[in-house]
Design a protein around this nucleic acid. Structure first.
Length: 572
RNA sequence: GGGCUCGUAGCUCAGCUGGAUAGAGUGUUUGACUACGAAUCAAAAGGUCGUGGGUUCGAAUCCCGCCGGGCUCACCA
């Protein structure tokens, strides 16, 4: 829409100022076009302040002159305070948007700008032996959403769950299991038992610091491939993944690779050799580092005094491996902002190693989660497990369904979709950099701007469409778009017309909340429209046009929800 | 102390590549179910956009200083 208007404005400028070089190209004009704060001021507006400098005339006069010379059957123009305000010809605009929706349906807003290029996304990345809690939700859902968004835009995506499955804590866990645990309880209780053993170890180690040494010994055994150590380690991993998989299934999240830290354990020789060859490694206090002082960063530690590798070493090896395996166009790390410096260092080291792809690596950072104002702490039990949250949200949804839709079929199934929708929506509602203070009352609120609100709107639209199917003769008439020229329909259409732009922006900024907000605005506009305008009435042609708008809204909402990772029930 | 980041209504946040009267939701007060779903809609009230300068025709938005919160800064990940 903007593109067409920009061309119209460009030719109007030319006409008004006799082909003088306006110094504004069509795409510059397009970038300047904005949406007025109020719809009384038109659908789009072109500010003339920039031109005022070029032509050395007041913006008011320019706007007036442009308004006089503007002619198009698609829109009319009005000058207002230095702005050229454009009012779209309502019926034509409606037809235009609706035609596209009819054509694309739930694919509306999709494109092939990705052109099959690959994007790797590193998200969720859970730690072995820890239960999935609310602190893991953001990385999981942001990653899941970005994956969907990029696929919708024609990219190939690779979802990577970079498991935290390496480190001395696993040695400690083996010691704890052998000392205080047994196989039956472990198999019965799974990760909960691992958590108990982990806490127990730390309690005991405070009294007897020699336990730390025992932990290190057992980790060494894992490193050396000792049979007993390995079989326990693999069992811990299996139990954790089984537990996480249950959550992933509920959330509808999946991955293409589970290569974790341990996978790279024997793949670090090469990057270390390369670092040496390129003279990047420096000895400092016995450790091997890459000096980044020139770049105003602390050094990046590659090898410890004892020669052992570190987190950064593994990330560098993993990045190189991922690029070789997938030849990615971009590699996104959806990781909390605490690790900002770490990623800056890793990306810089890769750049210094002459890996061109380093500039295509992005740390998609997000805020911290606290619980009732305090830091999450497994050991203190100050924590909310995701399954508990999801269960309570689904119970709450079921209560409301029992109250409001007692005759609904598959109540449990729909309660799940709604409860999970509420949790997912809340997670992706705000800019990802914002910290989240988890509060039960907020999490279980289903009124106002929430997941259930959007789902409800979708279900409501579905309900109208079901009603419409019963109308005889509706499909024999031609739709009359003059039924969509009122303010409420137009506002809804305007928002729908801007939805594809929101998807592009969400991808560009790695910001799913842009879609959450766009779909909420559309849902709001539909609910207003629904109250103010009768959809089904005696005039079949007009009814048909309104029904088509209803279908269009439904499709867009469903698409938006799928990009966020929410289900869209047709009844609730 | 250095770096990064955030500061907008009682609360949670949009708006930030400069533009028109700073917007939502929630909470509070009030109104609307005898035709399409009240998990909805409508109305009222609520603001020194942390603060002080600067740039500009124009600043919540850009630049600098300051204040306040968070994160981070060598052998954890």
């Amino acid at each position: 829409m903007k593109e067409i208007l920009a061309e119209l404005i460009a030719s109007t400028i030319e006409k008004s100022y006799n082909n003088q070089d306006s110094s504004l190209k069509t795409d510059e004009i397009e970038a300047l076009i904005e949406v007025p704060p109020n719809s009384d001021m038109g659908d789009y507006a072109f500010p003339c302040f920039r031109l005022s400098k070029v032509f050395r005339t007041s913006p008011n006069i320019i706007a007036q002159k442009l308004a006089e010379n503007f002619s198009s059957d698609l829109a009319r123009a009005e000058a207002m305070g230095g702005y050229l305000n454009l009012f779209l010809e309502r019926e034509k605009f409606a037809k235009r948007i609706i035609d596209e929706l009819k054509n694309k349906g739930e694919r509306y807003g999709s494109s092939n700008i990705g052109n099959g290029k690959t994007i790797c996304l590193d998200y969720s990345s859970i730690n072995i032996a820890k239960r999935f809690h609310i602190g893991h939700l953001s990385t999981t859902m942001i990653g899941n959403s970005l994956k969907a968004i990029f696929e919708f835009l024609g990219y190939k995506t690779v979802g990577i769950n970079y498991l935290g499955d390496w480190g001395t804590q696993f040695g400690k866990l083996i010691y704890a299991f052998k000392t205080w645990g047994n196989m039956d309880t472990l198999k019965e209780k799974g990760v909960d038992e691992l958590t108990r053993l982990y806490i127990k170890f730390h309690e005991e180690a405070e009294k007897d610091p020699s336990l730390e040494e025992e932990g290190r010994k057992w980790f060494k055994a894992i490193e050396d491939g000792n049979d007993e150590a390995m079989s326990l380690f693999n069992l811990f991993k299996e139990l954790t993944l089984k537990d996480a998989q249950r959550v992933y299934d509920i959330l509808g999240v999946s991955f293409d690779s589970y290569h974790g830290e341990s996978y790279y354990n024997d793949k670090m020789d090469r990057p270390i050799r390369e670092l040496k060859e390129k003279n990047l490694l420096k000895n400092s206090e016995g450790a091997s580092i890459v000096d980044l002082e020139k770049y105003d960063m602390p050094p990046c530690l590659i090898l410890k005094k004892d020669g052992a590798t570190l987190y950064a070493t593994r990330d560098i090896a993993a990045a190189i491996d991922r690029h070789e395996t997938y030849n990615f166009d971009k590699c996104l790390y959806i990781v909390a902002y605490q690790q900002d410096l770490h990623f800056k260092q890793v990306f810089k080291v890769l750049e210094l190693m002459d890996y061109d792809f380093a500039k295509n690596m992005v740390h998609v950072a997000f805020g911290m989660v606290s619980y009732e104002g305090q830091q999450l702490a497994t050991r203190k039990g100050h924590i909310v497990y995701l399954e508990d949250l999801l269960n309570r949200a689904c119970e709450k949804a079921l209560e409301i369904i029992n109250e409001k839709s007692p005759n609904l079929e598959n109540k449990e199934e729909i309660a799940m979709q709604v409860g999970i929708g509420a949790v997912v929506y809340t997670d992706l509602q705000n800019g990802r950099i914002k910290d989240i203070d988890f509060r039960w009352d907020r999490a279980l609120n289903f009124d106002g701007e929430t997941g259930p609100y959007v789902q409800y709107t979708h279900a409501r639209a579905c309900s109208v469409l079901r009603k419409a199917e019963e109308i005889t003769g509706l499909y024999d008439v031609e739709e009359d778009y003059s039924a969509l020229t009122d303010d409420f329909s137009q506002n809804l259409l305007r928002l729908i017309s801007r939805f594809p732009e929101s998807i592009l922006q969400a991808a560009d900024k790695y910001e799913p909340s842009i879609i959450t907000r766009a779909m909420t605005d559309i849902a709001k506009a539909f609910n207003k429209y629904y109250y103010e305008q009768r959809i089904i009435d005696e005039d079949l042609s007009k009814t048909k046009a309104r029904i088509i708008l209803c279908k269009a809204t439904k499709d867009v909402l469903k698409t938006a929800m799928s990009l966020i990772g929410m289900q869209a029930p047709e009844r609730m």
